[in-house]
Design a protein around this nucleic acid. Structure first.
Lengths: 192, 192
DNA sequence: TTCTCGTTCCTAGCGCTGCTAGCAATCCCT
DNA sequence: AGGGATTGCTAGCAGCGCTAGGAACGAGAA
């Protein structure tokens, strides 16, 4: 009993090690630098060990994404709660969102851009994901009016997502980001 | 003179052949199926020939993107001009945009998602790209109010882009797309 | 304590990728 | 008709995700 418990514990630790190594490698050098060989070398195990923990590289990225999402949720919540007044809260959440995407692009990509099969808009979605979406929803709630709150939140979120991804890929000029966010806020942060 | 002209013509034809083959392959089987080997086989030349036309695979994708953008511009324009009234025009453009992304996801990806270094928000941006953006801008213009028209258009575009990409990757439920677009239109298609 | 059975993990390798060096053949011009 | 440049091929490199098969190790039984 105790032996098996120890083994499972060690296994879980190694799994955490893999996820963390993948996250660090991705954040430092981008996802294209995260190869199974480099990852294996970094955790000081051979390649096939990775496959005893995860189905494949995509599953490793999905695990990193879920963890990263928890960080995002925390930052969104902090922004929202620090602000006073609903307009300020919405702006704070938008800023926190932009800031996260800017500071941790690899993580943002894993969560929102990479093609990785995480369940999203369903009850089976990871708790961290629902928490992050929940923060957005609470910030949007005061401005819902007659609109469906969930759909309104999804639309606002899409706006933020579009802004940060198009900017990061060089499709929108970086210097005007704040003004674009302000426009988005003006259009969503009012009773209509 | 004539000989060189013929050679250049043949070369240009072959380049078109490559671009078209890449586009078809991508639209039929996705970009991950577009490998230099398959592409070479399809145009009935050897692999290295591709590299005498394009710097690499990314450049081929960029070429496909520019062509696809012309198609997008045409569809946006058709939608805009067929509608009467500014609200209807904005809705028509949004629908045309969504429809393009839905019908031709590989093309949409090449233009707006893939990391490919096309100049975007600069005067050197391809004409087709500027044309497509221009259609959005004209549809948005009646609702600019005090906002900068360019920035407002970029923000509206970001909203559309976020909606279609998040939906296509399974991060937003497909069935509510029309309602989300309606919300976006309600927030951008009014004098504020 | 020794033997045996399971598990764990590594070596080696498959088929693929984007890309390129170097040679053969072809075509144009003198 | 021969010389020279251009064109496009064959072959190969380094790296990718992933996996088969066997070696080595540790746990329990005689």
């Amino acid at each position: 009993m105790s032996i098996q418990a120890r083994r499972e514990r060690e296994r879980a630790e190694r799994e955490r090690l893999i996820i963390e190594a993948a996250r660090e490698l991705a954040e430092n050098e981008g996802w294209e630098a995260v190869t199974t060989r480099r990852l294996a070398e970094r955790v000081e195990y051979s390649q096939p060990v990775l496959y005893s923990h995860f189905k494949g590289k995509d599953a490793i990225m999905a695990a990193v994404a879920v963890e990263g999402c928890a960080d995002l949720a925390v930052e969104l919540r902090a922004g929202r709660l620090a602000a006073d007044g609903p307009e300020e809260a919405l702006a704070a959440v938008a800023d926190a969102y932009s800031s996260f995407a800017e500071r941790r692009p690899a993580l943002y990509d894993a969560i929102f851009s990479q093609r990785v099969d995480l369940p999203f808009a369903t009850p089976e979605a990871p708790a961290a994901l629902q928490a992050a979406f929940g923060e957005l929803r609470e910030a949007v709630r005061p401005f819902a009016g007659d609109d469906d709150l969930g759909l309104l939140t999804e639309t606002f979120w899409s706006g933020l997502h579009g802004l940060v991804t198009l900017m990061r890929d060089g499709r929108l000029p970086r210097e005007a980001h704040a003004r674009r966010v302000a426009i988005l806020l003006a259009r969503f942060g009012s009773g209509l």
